[in-house]
Design a protein around this nucleic acid. Structure first.
Lengths: 233, 233
DNA sequence: AGCCCATTAGGTACGACTAATTCAAGCCCT
DNA sequence: AGGGCTTGAATTAGTCGTACCTAATGGGCT
């Protein structure tokens, strides 16, 4: 995935970030740079750089004479891929997964509709290939192969929408899908109906049928939501 | 808005960030920390902190023996409020505004539907108040007052949806709406039809009619898209 | 109550040293 | 002779530690 620990400050972040997003330090908690530097056995310079990054994510706020105070969760940059990963690794993973899936259910249908009118021939071919790949890995405990094509499928559609904001949600979708396969209860084989829907979405996009692509994609995301309801009502 | 220049490194970012997002340094461009420190007349420590922040936004990548290389736009954290502000201040503001409006058109209808079933009585009251405020400022060149209520209206709905990912898009909506009022051509008074739609959305949410809230909100966002088409086809 | 000042923790600057990576010169082997 | 590999020198970010500045804060004084 992403390079863990590109430098000492990155190592520090890999510990501090998850700790903060996990609520280990409640909002308003005050940390001191020097104390943190000692705790992590790094120089103040390194700790300052780490704090700066946390600050840019709005996880903390640095004020003179006070220290580094933890900000309430409502202020966090929850779209930062790093923050998303930290939170998905934490305790409220289910809630996080649900939020992200709801976001998917809002974005992906619209993205699919746009893809139906904007996708190039190459993109259509790639999307179709992914759908075929999903079918090929839909039976016989080939979950890893299925996941790979599933992620690529949704990422391609988001990209083909031509909207950069949508395109950048590819990472989010990947996290959600990977999480479902790896951490949550996943039925031995994917739902055949879902596989069919993916094939049909590919069809609709290829044919330039925006409305159909949108509705079919909505069915997929609603299925994902129902799946979550079953696991954690 | 946000505090401009919380420290020297912030001052540097206020210049470097917009420059990079504006494409002033094409992808692959190499900057050197020391050179930048000299150019901005700050110490290396300060410049390093600034670079760390840019790195956390995926605007640049810092590698030994190479320098600080500018990453392609596709890698940028376009959901970072700071990045959004920088890009909106730059040359491709129209494209950016369009991307964000498309995002709104995907998210807000779903958020409104959720708000219809999740909003508390207090939230319903606040939303209604905003709609009333919009009506009150809809005639006679009261654009600032109108904007204020418009922003609050959409922000409240996003919050009332109960989904934190939606809630955090309040800043985005504010930027878009503020941009429309301040920088783009804005008709002297807002479209009466749009004002009515807002009132009706408030109604639907109050009555718990999710489907109606969703459809009405979709009309609002589609109107916003059409407005953009007129300005920049 | 209001003002003043000592305290405190972050902010900035500088200098020295480390480490990784690139590039190229030089070598060996084919 | 040419191509690929090794080695080393140059370069730039990374880390550390120190010294000093600045501004909030809280308590004590008037």
């Amino acid at each position: 995935m992403t390079t863990p620990g590109r430098g000492l400050h990155g190592r520090v972040l890999d510990t501090l970030g998850p700790a903060i997003t996990a609520g280990e330090y409640p909002p308003g908690s005050v940390l001191r740079t020097d104390e943190l530097a000692q705790r992590f056995e790094v120089s103040r310079s390194v700790m300052r750089e780490a704090v700066r990054v946390l600050e840019s994510m709005h996880l903390v706020e640095s004020r003179r004479r006070v220290g580094v105070t933890v900000r309430p969760a409502a202020a966090w940059n929850v779209y930062d891929p790093q923050v998303i990963r930290w939170r998905l690794a934490g305790a409220d993973r289910p809630r996080q997964l649900r939020s992200l899936t709801v976001l998917r259910s809002a974005v992906e249908p619209v993205a699919a509709a746009l893809a139906a009118t904007h996708a190039t021939a190459e993109q259509c071919a790639a999307i179709t290939e992914c759908a075929i790949g999903m079918v090929a890995h839909s039976r016989g405990h080939k979950l890893e192969g299925y996941l790979l094509h599933d992620v690529a499928f949704h990422r391609l559609i988001l990209t083909a929408s031509g909207n950069e904001m949508f395109a950048r949600l590819g990472d989010v979708v990947e996290e959600v899908l990977a999480g479902r396969t790896h951490h949550e209860v996943m039925f031995d084989d994917p739902d055949p109906a879902a596989v069919t829907l993916h094939v049909q979405v590919a069809e609709a996009i290829r044919e330039g049928d925006a409305t159909r692509a949108e509705h079919l994609t909505r069915e997929i995301t609603e299925g994902a939501l129902k799946e979550l309801d079953i696991l954690a009502p």
